[in-house]
Each structure stands twice: as structure tokens, then as C-alpha cells.
Design a protein around this nucleic acid. Structure first.
Lengths: 178, 178
DNA sequence: AACTATGTTTAGTTTATACTAAACGATTGG
DNA sequence: CCAATCGTTTAGTATAAACTAAACATAGTT
């Protein structure tokens, strides 16, 4: 293939690598997605190894993660033992999926911790012994409440955005100037 | 202070630590913010070292980052050489600030890389030699265009959210159920 | 001016993460 | 049934981030 075209691809892949890292994924994952995204035809694991320049094992695990996130899809061809991959090109779909994934895992868990702390403090307010403790406990309770409230709002906001995007993806209208 | 109250605080701080890590900041940073957030009075660096359990140096650098992000504020008291810190409690304000910060730094840069790759490819389409190269180059160009378009939309969306939040913070109305 | 209290910087260490190389397992073809 | 071709798993390694300990800088106090 044309050298300059390869250079352009590599530059793009490098950019994807950066973005991936920026969003908290591994660099290789972004690079691999970039390579798949720029492949005109379904691309095999070996070709990815060649294009991205990481080991087969790394490509294997990253590709699995990408598939779990719905960012790529596996295409098996009859009479061919290789797995081929194509890129999901609906980015909003990807965003939705990733947001859902992240909400479920760590985000909820963190929220729960805040809730637990709040319950701990509020239980304490009941059977408090000294006056000073009550004062501090009430302060704690208020602050924790405020934070939990914020996280709930954030949760609602994200849910709203996902819903909006669901509408958009059904091609009602493009609200965000694409 | 009451042991159970301390436990509740530590549980909360641990939660903040997780959230911080989840959002791509250091764990200590979240913990430190948590400690400041739960302090009824402005809190000094030494007290933070005691409560969070990391070294003075780490507290110092993390505190500086927190201040840069507008998550905490320094309060110097007359006749006291220590610096004291209080927490910013307007979380939406913090979100706006962090979003702006992130957009400027890495996000823009990544976008630029995609744009550059696209220009490279499009220049190539003009002076192309073989037929096959043109075909691939056009494919690349289309895909890169689609991705850049998406990032622009995302940018607009974030800008819109910031604008919405600016309105809300001026207490027009609370749109997100707080 | 020396000493003390305080925050910052730095050099080195720890730690978590992601990768490599290679063994492994499984499937297909000869 | 053996060999070849894949993808996966694993044990070890490299690397980047973040922390510690300690030196340092600064300013206030005696």
C-alpha cells in the first residue's frame, strides 16, 4: 500500500491511542479500534498484530474487551478458521453502552458507600452521648446528603442524555448539530 | 472524637477515594477532598496528613491540584502561618470547571490529530497514482470525517451542558431534580 | 542571626497496569 | 493421528503513576 496512506493511518491510530488512554482505557485498545475502524474489509487478529505492533496476546484480550463494549463485532467466515472484526460505527451507541457499563460497575458502588456512611452517621445521631458529637454528626449528615443528592442528579442527567440519544438514533432529529 | 463518627468519616473518605480513581484522578486526591469536605472548620495540611494517612508531600501536591480544579479554596488566617482549606460545595461548578479543563488539554489535542490524519489522506487523494489507493483513501477519508463529526457533536453537547448548568447555577430553576 | 514552623520540591521506591513471550488448547486438514 | 493454524491463557517483565522520606526554601519568632 501507498506509504503516505500508511503514514496517515498510523497517525490516526496514534490519535485513537491517545483518546483511549484519555478516557481511561489502555492505549493499545484505542489503537486496535482505530485499525479495525479504518479497515475497509473485516480484519483478522494477525493483521491487527501487524498493523498495531503489539503482541498477539494483547490483541486477543483487547479485542475481547472491545467486543464486550460493543465497539467492534466478530465476523466468522465459513471455511476460514480466523476471526474477523468490523468496527461499530454508531458512536452514540457506543457512548450509551460505555456509560451504562460504567454506571453499573464502579459508579453505583461508590454511591452505595456514600449512602452507607450517611446511614452510619444518622444512626449515631440517635444514640449520641456528648453535645459536640451531635453537632459534628449533623454536619456530616448534611454534607453527605448533599453529595448523594448531587450524584443522584448526575445519574438522572446521564439517563436523560441516554434517552435523548436513543431518540436521536431512531432518526427523529439530530439535536446536537451533527 | 467519637469512634463511630471517625469510622463513618473514614468510610466516606474511602468512598471518595474510589470515585476519584474512577474518574481518572489519584485516590489520595479524592480522599483529601473528602476530608476537607467533611471538616466543619477550615482544615490545615497537617490535619489532612493525620486524617488521610498519606505523606505531607503528597498532600501538598494533591491540594494544589484540587485548588487548581476549584474543588477547594485556601483560607489564610491572620497571625497563623498555616494554610487552611475549605471545600467547594457547588458540585456542578466543579463539574463545569473539570470539563473545561479536560477539553482544553487532551481532548482538543486528540481531535487535532484526527483532523491532521484526514488532511493527509485528502491531500493524497489529489495526487494519487494507482486506482486501489484512491479507493482506500476515500474510505479512510469518509471514516475519519465521520469520527471528527462525532467529536464535534460531543463537544457541542458538553458545551450545551455547561451552558445549561450556568443557567441553573444562577438559580433560574433546577432541571435535574435536585 | 539563629531557630522554628510550614509548605514545596526532588530523588528514590512502590505499586498497579498492560504488555511480551511462550505454553497451551482446540479445531481443521491431510 | 499427526501436523498446522488459530485464539487464549499465564508467568514474567516493563513502565508509568503516585507515593514516601528527606532535603530544601521561606518566613516569622526569639
Amino acid at each position: 500500500m501507498n506509504t503516505e496512506l500508511v503514514q496517515a493511518r498510523e497517525h490516526f491510530i496514534q490519535g485513537m491511542s491517545r483518546i483511549s488512554h484519555f478516557w481511561g482505557f489502555s492505549k493499545a485498545m484505542g489503537a486496535i479500534y482505530g485499525a479495525i475502524y479504518l479497515s475497509p474489509a473485516p480484519i483478522s487478529l494477525d493483521e491487527l498484530v501487524a498493523q498495531v505492533g503489539v503482541s498477539k496476546g494483547a490483541v486477543s484480550t483487547n479485542v475481547r474487551t472491545l467486543e464486550r463494549l460493543g465497539m467492534i463485532h466478530k465476523r466468522i467466515q465459513l471455511g476460514d478458521r480466523k476471526d474477523y472484526y468490523i468496527a461499530e460505527t454508531d458512536f452514540w451507541k457506543i457512548v450509551r453502552r460505555v456509560l451504562r457499563e460504567r454506571e453499573q460497575s464502579e459508579f453505583d458502588q461508590a454511591l452505595r458507600t456514600v449512602g452507607e456512611s450517611m446511614v452510619l452517621v444518622e444512626e449515631l445521631i440517635e444514640g449520641a452521648d456528648t453535645e459536640m458529637d451531635v453537632e459534628t454528626a449533623v454536619f456530616y449528615s448534611d454534607r453527605m446528603q448533599a453529595m448523594q443528592s448531587f450524584f443522584n442528579s448526575l445519574d438522572n442527567l446521564v439517563a436523560m442524555l441516554i434517552a435523548l440519544e436513543d431518540l436521536r438514533s431512531k432518526s427523529v432529529q439530530n439535536l446536537f448539530g451533527r
